[in-house]
């Protein structure tokens, strides 16, 4: 049951370079509230991909339109919730995020460099890890569910502060081991369908699998408001969903495998801009 082959890749890439931008017209641009975000950039010297495309370009016109306006973007309603959360004291310390961090704008640039090695903790930290570190250790509150609505709304709000910033995750130094693990996971076939992430997202992006238009699997748009479940989705939740789709036993969200994979996948997007909460199918 071999869905994808190398020869398909060639035709996929040709069709890709000639045609897939036609989804929304040759000149379709991602301009949100007047800010233009690049959706197509050249891969860096270490990039396995020559050209990087945001997931936005693979969606239909109607879906793309939903992201063009922060009012129409349904994900932003959850970002509003997070703005309230930011100001609300929680936990034994009686502090809110604002009490220590001031305005959320102070988070600008952070999303673009995560996940990263946290030297103090001696571990790879994702945005969710940083948030829970503050929630538990500085606020004295119960930790938030990693892929839950409250957490993802906050990840969305903080990601929004980095909208337009270029993804630049560090893959060397102490993060190197996680990077290598993530890379290995990315290229390893698993599951009943015996597929690796690369089979779809590297070998066949731009091509259709049934009616789904395969993207490069970039995460610069996460958390993503998915039309499918009408909420903001975490990176790890999406990884889990993908693994279930190929009938593999998924790794656990917030576990080491997905953290490593997140670092690797983020690095594949080095050069693309953060989009703030995106809208995807």
């Amino acid at each position: 049951m071999n869905i994808v082959t190398k020869t398909t890749m060639i035709s996929g890439i040709i069709a890709l370079s000639l045609g897939f931008a036609a989804n929304a017209g040759e000149d379709a641009k991602l301009v949100i509230n007047g800010q233009e975000l690049a959706t197509h950039v050249k891969g860096g010297p270490d990039s396995p991909l020559d050209e990087l495309f945001s997931g936005w370009v693979f969606r239909t016109e109607e879906t793309q339109a939903l992201q063009l306006d922060d009012f129409e973007n349904p994900g932003m309603v959850f970002v509003d919730h997070a703005r309230d959360t930011w100001e609300t004291a929680e936990g034994t310390a009686g502090k809110s995020c604002a009490d220590c961090h001031g305005d959320v704008e102070s988070m600008a640039g952070l999303r673009a460099v995560l996940p990263r090695w946290n030297a103090d903790k001696g571990a790879l930290y994702t945005m969710e890890d940083y948030i829970n570190d503050s929630v538990v250790n500085h606020m004295g509150a119960e930790k938030w569910k990693y892929t839950g609505a409250k957490m993802q709304a906050m990840v969305g709000l903080i990601s929004l502060q980095s909208r337009g910033h270029t993804v630049a995750v560090e893959t060397g130094g102490p993060a190197a081991a996680a990077y290598e693990l993530g890379k290995e996971i990315y290229y390893t076939r698993v599951g009943q369908l015996d597929m690796a992430c690369s089979n779809c997202h590297e070998d066949n992006y731009g091509v259709y699998i049934r009616a789904d238009h395969l993207s490069q699997g970039q995460i610069n748009g996460f958390p993503a408001y998915r039309l499918k479940n009408a909420k903001l989705n975490a990176v790890h939740a999406r990884f889990k969903g993908c693994m279930k789709n190929i009938r593999a036993t998924p790794y656990k969200p917030a576990g080491d495998e997905f953290r490593a994979l997140e670092l690797y996948v983020a690095s594949r997007g080095n050069g693309l801009p953060i989009e703030g909460p995106s809208v995807r199918n």
């Binding site: 009012f71 309603v77 509003d80 919730h81």
Partner: peptide
């Protein structure tokens, strides 16, 4: 749990 509805006017 829902915060204020959003309206654009």
């Amino acid at each position: 749990m829902a915060s204020k509805p959003r309206v654009k006017v």
